[in-house]
């Protein structure tokens, strides 16, 4: 069964899953409600309706308004905590009643379209830890850093609350290092900047540790509420995410635009149009998929350039080497050496 994907004009977010929290945070810091809402298509009277909804576009506009109105760098960190402890988000409540981190994250990933439709994750196991990579599932304009901070704050806050410490956890971010120490101050974990992916690394020992508030009955009750919410917010993915998913499964073959469009049930031209609404295009997505796959393969093991080129669907290894140099600025062998050294 292929999961439906949402268009740019679908109202896929609930107002109570973030907007109301963000607005009250901003208002307590002196921002004016009508200025925050200007240009978003959200009406003041809808804010407290239980199932009031908004476009993802409006959400991005709202974030932008908040940053224009306020110079408050703590906003995304607080929003993460506020979401986690909100009484109106049953998904977040269910996270706290989970048995352990594994169950909580599985729950979050399964219902992510209700809270963070803008990201999807990938898990990699390493020797002592599990890496969770977050990739943007749709065009986030310049709000990717803000949203990443929100997600990571939510995760870290959950771990801090339920396991008592965030010891051993580290974060890698793509963004360049900022002179301010906001990340360290709010999160209390190691953060490294200028990395090739945005990911969080969680030690295996934390993974199975029992949550303080673990409660099987409450967990299944809140989970039922999440399921019911699925009738309102159906489980659908953003178009760029679906395309990356398809391409990745098809490797080493490469699907062309028409093939992808047929699988997704779209015409080729509307696929193109919808991608441009996400500020991306088909070739960029394909390139991204290959880049991630290459990095992952290189980190895993001992492939020759020829093997890598074959696995990624390059016609010969020279093309692969050139592409790799474009992505990382390094040739594959020195990347491998760097990784092994670390």
């Amino acid at each position: 069964m292929s999961i439906r994907h949402f268009g740019y004009q679908d109202k896929i977010l609930l107002l109570q899953h973030g907007s109301t929290e963000l607005l009250s945070l901003a208002q307590r810091r002196g921002a004016l409600l009508h200025k925050l809402l200007s240009g978003t298509g959200i009406f003041e009277q809808d804010l407290h309706k239980p199932h009031g909804r908004l476009h993802h576009n409006d959400w991005l506009k709202l974030l932008q308004n908040c940053q224009q109105q306020l110079n408050s760098p703590e906003l995304p960190y607080l929003l993460g905590g506020a979401l986690l402890n909100s009484r109106y988000i049953s998904l977040c409540q269910s996270l706290q009643y989970a048995q352990n981190l594994r169950q909580a994250l599985a729950q979050l990933y399964y219902f992510r379209h209700q809270l963070f439709p803008c990201f999807y994750g990938r898990l990699y196991q390493q020797q002592h830890c599990i890496l969770i990579e977050l990739k943007p599932a749709l065009g986030l304009a310049n709000q990717q850093g803000f949203m990443l901070t929100v997600v990571f704050s939510l995760l870290l806050e959950l771990i801090k609350q339920q396991l008592g410490s965030v010891c051993g956890i580290s974060l890698q971010l793509q963004q360049p290092a900022s002179p301010q120490l906001q990340h360290q101050l709010h999160w209390g974990v190691d953060v490294s900047f200028n990395q090739s992916v945005d990911c969080i690394s969680i030690p295996l020992t934390l993974w199975q540790q029992r949550f303080i508030d673990a409660d099987l009955q409450k967990f299944s009750a809140t989970r039922r509420t999440c399921r019911q919410l699925n009738h309102v917010l159906s489980k659908q993915r953003a178009l760029p995410e679906s395309i990356c998913h398809l391409q990745r499964r098809a490797l080493p073959q490469l699907l062309n635009q028409d093939q992808v469009a047929t699988v997704l049930g779209l015409s080729s031209s509307s696929l193109k149009r919808q991608l441009s609404q996400h500020n991306t295009n088909f070739a960029t997505l394909l390139d991204e998929v290959r880049r991630d796959a290459a990095r992952q393969l290189l980190q895993q093991g001992h492939y020759s350039n020829r093997q890598l080129a074959q696995k990624l669907g390059y016609s010969d290894e020279h093309n692969f080497r050139r592409a790799f140099k474009r992505w990382t600025g390094l040739i594959p062998s020195s990347f491998k050496g760097m990784f092994n050294f670390n």
Binding site: L25, R28, G81, A82, N85, K160
Partner: peptide, 14 residues
């Protein structure tokens, strides 16, 4: 402080 926020709500914390 996170516990205060959690127990009394973000508004009280602010």
């Amino acid at each position: 402080f996170a516990a205060v926020n959690r127990r009394h709500g973000m508004a009280a914390g602010d």
